[in-house]
Amino acid sequence: MRWIWIDKFVEFEPGVRAVAVKNVTMAEEHLHDHFPGYPTMPAALMIEAMAQTAGILVGQARNFQEKVILAKVNQALFHEIVRPGDQLFLEARMENITAEAATTRGTIRCEDRLIAEITLMFSHIDQNLSGMQFPEENFVFNAQFMDLLKCYIPSAAPLKQDL
């Protein structure tokens, strides 16, 4: 099972920017383990949510043909904590994309609060690592993911052009 950490996209401009929503609920176990008795979302999981948002933006820009892997967290600044009931808006903007890699710059907001600023770098792994061979099947954007994409982004069909 793929680990899904964002709930849906509310905006998607191919190759430019994407905004996803993550609803944080008291039912999530991670909230209770981080600081027992004071449920907050771990910063690492905010990075994961941004990596999924930005990773899909990067993947779509190459029609989901590349295997897009998070390669580097260039910067992660956290300004506020996230509590149960918060609805996070994750906005990722494409900074740069080439045959080998991409960088994105993102913010996480909750209502009018700036929660975090996160800059990431993704590798198109087939194009890197000195010609190391990976399985031909795209294990990042697999069939299950492509199905999910349809409910992630209601207008997803035109995003994958050869479907």
Binding site: K72, N96, T98, A101, T103, M121, S123, L129
Partner: peptide, 14 residues
């Protein structure tokens, strides 16, 4: 590391 080389190239270009 290897990915840093690409990062550096991106930043130099910009």
């Amino acid at each position: 590391e290897s990915i840093d080389f690409l990062d550096i190239v991106f930043q130099l270009e910009k």
